[in-house]
């Protein structure tokens, strides 16, 4: 134990200890802010959907119902934690934790504005895809360990859906990787800023379309929310969960939505930058901090999530699989082919 203290206190390694401290503070700040955003994303969703359905939404707790997320959180925290008698206890305890941790870990590689990222991995994009595949375990195991038919069917559906759409999502991002020449998310944003259109949506519209559809399916949202289809499966894989374990699934799902929106903003919409022709036209816009643009893009896509939820009905399960395998994957492959050919042509290799 002495040696550990020595290495931390020894003069040569003070920078080292400081660096670790800074990283820990960064992690705490990012998690706290992300969870606050997640809490208010639920409020935002209820308000948006309520107004689309000509209702008012939450308005009792605090002014305009602004404290509703805290009231929900406190309610979930003090609810009784019910565990089915025949459930597989270790897996039942573990699965919401895995689901939530996989979602939170993804936050580590997201650059929120220039230079602010916990881990500036040079394979950040691959890391995000890896973490999104970890989340599937929470779903499968919660479905099986609850020992209920609704949960089991929901879990199987969710897992096969997430695996199928992961392929389409990964392929849709390959076009962005080819154009940016990097897997580091900060580099991808910088490459977009250097690009004439300022965003990758315009040349990569096929990849963008595939990514948006796959993002809906990956986060199990309408119109692809078959794993938790209320009218047939009660609540799907988390039917048997209550209290704080249910809250972990809920938070994980909304963190997943936040991550998908951030990924979309970073890879297709220019992240914390705005196109240069706009700042040339209206110069004072370049004084606005980057995080404002980033959050605007993220929330625009979150709004799109809610808009779609209030508009579209649910797909049938075979339709869902057909869209994934027969439409999105071929489209993404065509996109890769075109992008690669154009890149080779520009570089003079053809």
């Amino acid at each position: 134990m002495n040696t550990i203290l020595e290495t931390i206190i020894a003069p040569g390694s003070i920078d080292f200890a400081l660096a670790i401290g800074i990283i820990l503070v960064k992690i705490a700040v990012v998690i706290a802010i992300a969870l606050l955003h997640v809490a208010y994303a639920t409020y935002f969703e209820r308000k948006v959907i309520a107004h689309m359905q000509v209702r008012l939404g939450p308005r009792e707790v605090g002014p305009y119902g602004l404290f509703q997320p805290f009231a929900d959180g406190i309610k979930l925290f003090f609810k009784e934690d019910i565990i089915p008698a025949k459930a597989d206890k270790p897996l039942f305890y573990l699965s919401p934790v895995i689901f939530f941790i996989a979602a939170l870990t993804s936050l580590a590689v997201l650059p929120f504005f220039d230079g602010f990222v916990i881990a500036d991995l040079n394979i950040g994009l691959l890391f995000l895809l890896a973490m999104s595949s970890l989340g599937a375990y929470g779903i499968i195991l919660s479905g099986w360990s609850s020992n209920s038919k609704f949960s089991f069917l929901g879990g199987l559906r969710a897992a096969s859906q997430v695996i199928s759409y992961e392929i389409a999502m990964g392929l849709s991002l390959v076009g962005v990787m080819i154009m940016a020449g990097s897997l580091n998310l900060s580099d991808i944003v910088r490459a977009q800023h250097a690009y004439p259109t300022g965003v990758f949506v315009i040349p990569q519209f096929l990849g963008f379309f595939v990514f948006v559809v796959a993002a809906f399916a990956e986060t199990n949202r309408l119109p692809f929310d078959l794993p938790e289809a209320e009218s047939e499966l009660v609540a799907g894989y988390f039917t048997e969960y209550s209290g704080f374990r249910f809250a972990l699934f809920f938070l994980g799902e909304y963190t997943g939505m936040l991550i998908m929106s951030s990924l979309l903003a970073l890879c297709f919409l220019g992240g914390w930058t705005i196109p240069r022709f706009i700042t040339d036209f209206i110069p004072f816009l370049s004084a606005v901090p980057g995080i404002v643009w980033f959050l605007m893009k993220v929330y625009a896509f979150m709004f799109f999530y809610y808009w779609v939820r209030a508009t579209l009905p649910r797909y049938r399960y075979d339709q869902l699989m057909a869209i994934g395998w027969k439409l999105l994957i071929p489209l993404a492959l065509i996109n890769i082919l075109i992008t690669g050919l154009v890149k080779a042509w520009i570089k003079g290799l053809l």
């Binding site: 691959l126 890391f127 895809l129 890896a130 970890l134 599937a136 695996i163 992961e166």
Partner: peptide
Amino acid sequence: VVQVIIYIG
């Protein structure tokens, strides 16, 4: 990362 994507995913 490929280990995580292929073996776990």
